[in-house]
């Protein structure tokens, strides 16, 4: 029966002092199990913010006019 997902992790270096601050933070205030979990969470949030602002507009002006015509015909516009 099927395989299991290989664990795909890599190492990122951060200053030891920052690591210590994060360890202290997650031990008292957050529900995170490790500094790695915390850093992953924060980085996903940040990366998505940047990716979202770079999403290309998928529509041509012809597309938009056709869609607007249908929306008008259906009473949405």
């Amino acid at each position: 029966m099927g395989k299991t997902l290989p664990t795909k992790y890599t190492t990122v270096s951060i200053p030891k002092t920052l690591h210590a601050r994060l360890e202290k933070l997650i031990s008292t205030k957050t529900g995170f199990k490790s500094v790695s979990d915390y850093v992953t969470f924060v980085l996903r949030e940040v990366v998505t913010m940047h990716e979202t602002s770079q999403s290309p507009d998928p529509f041509s002006s012809k597309d938009i006019e056709e869609i607007k015509a249908r929306l008008k015909a259906l009473g949405y516009l």
């Binding site: 998928p58 529509f59 938009i64 869609i67 929306l71 259906l74 949405y76 516009l77």
Partner: peptide, 17 residues
């Protein structure tokens, strides 16, 4: 059919509004 909109259509609709 008259109340099914695709994501492409709702995106245009929300923007137009």
């Amino acid at each position: 059919a008259d109340c099914t909109l695709s994501p492409k259509e709702t995106r245009v609709l929300f923007t137009e509004r």
